[in-house]
Amino acid sequence: MADKMNLILMNGTLDKLLAATTITSGAVAMGKEVTIFVTFWGLNAFRKGAWADPAAQKLPADYQQYAPALKEAMQRMGVKPWIETLKTAKELGNVKVYACGLTMDMFGLKLADLEDVVDGEKGVAGFVGDSEGAQVLVF
C-alpha cells in the first residue's frame, strides 16, 4: 500500500467535495500523507466563504433533483461541512492543499482570496513530481 495519496480535485460540487475530504480523512487515519491539487471548479469552491454560501453549493446537473433530500439527510445525520472535515484531517495528519497556478490566473485569484486551508500554489509539474510513488485519485 502506497504511503502517499494524491487527490486531483477538479469539481466544485458538494458531492465531490464531501467525498474527497472524507477519503482524505480515511487516508490520514491510515497514516498516509495526502496532497490535494485543487483545480478548475474545485478551486472555485475554495474561495473564502464559498463553503457556507448556499448559492455556491451545487450538485452536478444530473443529480440536482436530489439536493433537498441530500441536505435533509446531511442535517439529520450530522454530516459536517466539507471544509471542517478537511481542517480536522489537516490537524490530525499530514495533508497539504495546493491551488493550481493556471486556474488561479484564469480566475484572477490570489492566495488571499482562498480559504486558509490552502497551503500554497503549485504548477502541474510540481504536482506530478509530488505524485511519484503515490496513489492518485481524481474527483
Binding site: T22, S25, G26, V28, A29, M74, M77, G78, V79, K80, T85, T88, A89, E91, L92
Partner: peptide, 17 residues
C-alpha cells in the same frame, strides 16, 4: 454522538494521539 462519518473515527484518533 450526532457526528457522522468520518467524525467519530477522527475524534478517536485525536484522543489516541
Amino acid at each position: 454522538r450526532g457526528s457522522a462519518c468520518p467524525g467519530p473515527l477522527m475524534e478517536l484518533i485525536r484522543g489516541l494521539k
